[in-house]
Design a protein around this nucleic acid. Structure first.
Length: 490
RNA sequence: CGGGGCGUAGCUUAGCCCGGUAGAGCGCCUGCUUCGGGAGCAGGAGGUCGGAGGUUCAAAUCCUCUCGCCCCGACCA
């Protein structure tokens, strides 16, 4: 069956397409434990690129990495009422260790606020000890009922930032600063446009004062919450007696923030950029930016073209035009016994942004035959000046991918007068981001969710708001308090 | 937790209704010919038929129990 080689198309079944792509591009595989997965080298390589980019941004804004333990005393979860209510149902709890029942059960962290603010309290006496700006790269466990590769699994990898500040305003600035970093990362690295905005009370983090998020639109027009940044207020500081003496000698509770993005981003990348031929990885996140496929007919050519390919690779990787530490990431696929065509399909499935074919005719011309993964356009590129040409082309691909994703999102966004009936129809059909008014009542939010499965993804920041503010609530028709973006979400 | 589906070679599966030698495609190994978009031929390796029990001369097939996974819904990064 030749069809075995083709993916289910997005139009046929988006969900099946996603699963097949993740498995066949070898990003991840199911593990023997229900709901958990193995991240394979192809997927982990993308995550590593994400980690590096984000880590650099966190460091550049004064954050330091640390590591807090996996196990948290169960009693810690109970210290913040809203927090325990939010997380208790999805916690894995360890009751036995060393062959004995434990005095106090240990919770496998679903997130680390409790243990971290407990420790911060130990370390903080004076306002001079603040701010504390910490990040950790870790795994967390949330016992989800319904799981999906990368998007929702029992265990996932993430970073969680935790900070403590002297004032509310300082914490708020931090919260927004991180949100801006997430946005920049999504746009500039993932080539994934996002909205920024405030979560409603029902969607905010359990224990936070306010939650902000970045929201991206997937190719099925559903929203993906791709990152969150919380202003925790003094909720955890009070629960864990995280106090300090201020300049006037008064004791005060610190103001905290926490923020995170997870391996879910890999799923977001797939659903933003994947096509019916497989994955498309934006160059900046691609573990391999360029794959060179030498083409030969016989042993003599095999030796000659493979050598030429390796030479091209050397020239590319030796180039320091992007800086000494940011070399072009190039792979030569000289596998024997596999036809070049088969190799093309495989690298396209895996999403490598640029392919250089190098056969006798190309070598003759002192050029490679280059194929863009995103547009599938092909052109001959001369050896002469190839590193700079390739780097420029990769930049263009990165940019074009962002522009294409942005255009797709805008084409599927609806602003201005939409009736609730039209909205329902839209949500049951193609889906969209709908910018519409909200009266501010949780009951309307709940009703819409009940009837359409759509939720308020965020109350968008000013720059994403419509030029003409909506005047009535999408649901009840009463005067609108605020503009909201409504959509079904992952 | 409700609904649906599926467990047979590494993967996709046929066979099950109607019990009787476990088959195919892909992949893998060897060799030859190939090689500019998913190669061809020849040979070969690979199986506790998810597990346990039962019926039977005989079970992948029938019965009972059980385990697991996937998909769709309620909760969530």
């Amino acid at each position: 069956m030749a069809d075995d080689k083709k993916l289910t198309t997005r139009a046929e079944d988006f969900s099946a397409w996603y699963n097949e792509l993740v498995l066949r591009a070898e990003l991840a595989d199911y593990s023997p434990v229900k709901g958990s997965m193995v991240i394979r080298p192809n997927g982990y390589g993308i995550w590593e690129r994400m980690q590096r980019a984000l880590d650099d941004m966190f460091k550049a804004t004064g954050h330091q990495n640390a590591y807090f333990p996996l196990f948290i005393p169960e009693s810690f979860l109970h210290k913040e009422a809203e927090h325990v209510e939010g997380f208790a149902p999805e916690c894995a709890v360890v009751t036995h260790g060393g062959g004995k029942k434990l005095e106090e059960p240990l919770v496998v962290r679903p997130t680390s606020e409790t243990i971290i603010y407990y420790m911060f309290a130990k370390w903080t006496q004076s306002y001079r000890d603040l701010p504390i700006l910490i990040n950790q790269w870790a795994n967390v466990v949330r016992w989800e009922m319904r799981t999906r590769l990368f998007l929702r699994t029992l265990e996932f990898l993430w970073q969680e930032g935790h900070t403590a500040h002297v004032t509310h305003d300082e914490a708020e600035v931090e919260t927004r600063k991180i949100l801006a970093i997430y946005r920049r990362f999504a746009e500039e690295w993932m080539a994934m446009p996002v909205l920024t905005g405030l979560k409603t009370h029902s969607e905010k983090f359990a224990g936070a004062l306010r939650t902000y998020s970045i929201e991206a639109m997937m190719q099925d027009n559903k929203a993906l919450q791709a990152g969150t940044s919380h202003n925790l207020g003094q909720n955890f500081a009070k629960a864990f007696e995280l106090q300090f003496q201020d300049e006037s000698g008064q004791m005060a509770h610190a103001w905290n923030t926490s923020w995170g993005v997870s391996t879910r981003l890999v799923g977001g990348l797939v659903m933003t950029h994947g096509d019916d031929n497989g994955l498309r990885v934006p160059p900046r996140l691609a573990p391999i930016e360029i794959v060179i496929v030498p083409i030969w007919k016989n042993e003599e050519e095999k030796a000659r073209l493979t050598a030429a390919a390796l030479k091209v690779q050397d020239d590319l990787t030796a180039w320091t035009g992007r800086g000494a530490t940011d070399r072009l990431r190039v792979h030569v696929d000289a596998r024997d016994g596999m036809r070049s065509g088969a190799k093309y399909y495989e690298w396209e499935l895996r999403g490598v942004p640029l392919r250089f074919e190098l056969g006798p005719k190309d070598l003759e011309k002192q050029a490679v035959f280059a194929a863009r993964r995103d547009t599938r356009e092909k052109q001959s590129l001369a050896f002469d000046g190839l590193p700079a040409t390739a780097a420029a082309l990769l930049d263009r691909i990165q940019n074009d991918m962002f522009q294409a994703a942005l255009a797709r999102r805008e084409a599927n966004s609806v602003r201005g007068g939409i009736s609730y009936a039209q909205f329902k129809e839209l949500m049951e059909g193609a889906g969209a981001f709908v910018y519409a008014g909200w009266c501010g009542e949780a009951s309307c939010e709940a009703k819409v969710k009940e009837e359409t499965k759509a939720t308020i993804r965020c109350l968008p920041d000013a720059e994403f708001c419509s030029s003409e503010a909506p005047t009535t609530c999408l649901c009840c028709g009463k005067p609108s308090q605020v503009e909201a973006v409504w959509a079904r979400a992952y």
